Amino acid sequence: MSMAQAILPGFVVLLCTLSGCTTTSGGVALRPDGTPGPQECSEEAKKAMRYMRLRVGDGALVELDANQIKSKPITLYDGPLESMLKNDLGILETTTRLYGQVWTGGPQVVIRYYEAHPPDSEKVPICAVARLSENQLRKRPDSLPGTAILDFSVAGVDIVDAFR
């Protein structure tokens, strides 16, 4: 191994540390408050959403955690998440599973969805986010680090063309 190959990984870590950036295992840069930074949707997801006629702003309701349906409160953890549609989202029918990532570092939970798995069909790439108005994805003050306790198990899910 050359000297450059040995030094490069350390240089990248040092540069990231000095600039204040942090990245998650999926390569998403984190802001100083622990929330994920901007991220583009993959071309594959954009193509799949066009094919399914899903447009930016199309929305539905989702059970945030398929393992805590109708629970109050619910606890979400940093990392992967499986959610379930409560009603149709375009051609994605009720009970379609949405797979994504949860970040609990900031004052509100951030959930980004990257895949949909309709019943009796193959998984398809998508770009969507969980949303609720009036700060209802704000985690409760008794949430421990790496977790978010929410008062509701249901949120809105909206199609996006990029994560901001």
Rank of each mutant, 00 (worst) to 15 (best):
V56P: 06
S133T: 09
D120F: 10
L150Q: 06
S153C: 13
L30S: 01
L64N: 00
I159S: 09
D58S: 02
R140K: 14
R140P: 09
A148K: 03
K46G: 14
L144W: 09
D78S: 07
E82L: 09
P141C: 02
I159A: 10
P125Q: 11
S143N: 05
D65Y: 02
L76Q: 10
E82I: 14
D33Q: 00
I126N: 02
M1R: 04
V56H: 08
N87E: 12
L132D: 07
W103R: 00
A66I: 06
L18F: 10
E93G: 01
Q136R: 12
P80C: 04
R138H: 14
A29S: 13
C41K: 03
S83V: 00
M3N: 07
R50W: 02
G57K: 03
L98A: 03
R138G: 15
A162I: 01
R50P: 01
S71E: 15
A6D: 06
N67K: 11
T104I: 13
T23Y: 14
Q39C: 08
G34W: 01
M49L: 13
C21K: 05
P118L: 06
G59C: 11
L8D: 14
I126V: 14
A29R: 10
I126W: 04
A116F: 08
K46F: 09
A162E: 13
G79Q: 08
R164L: 15
T22F: 05
L61R: 09
G90Y: 00
D65T: 06
Q5F: 05
R164W: 15
K46E: 11
E122S: 13
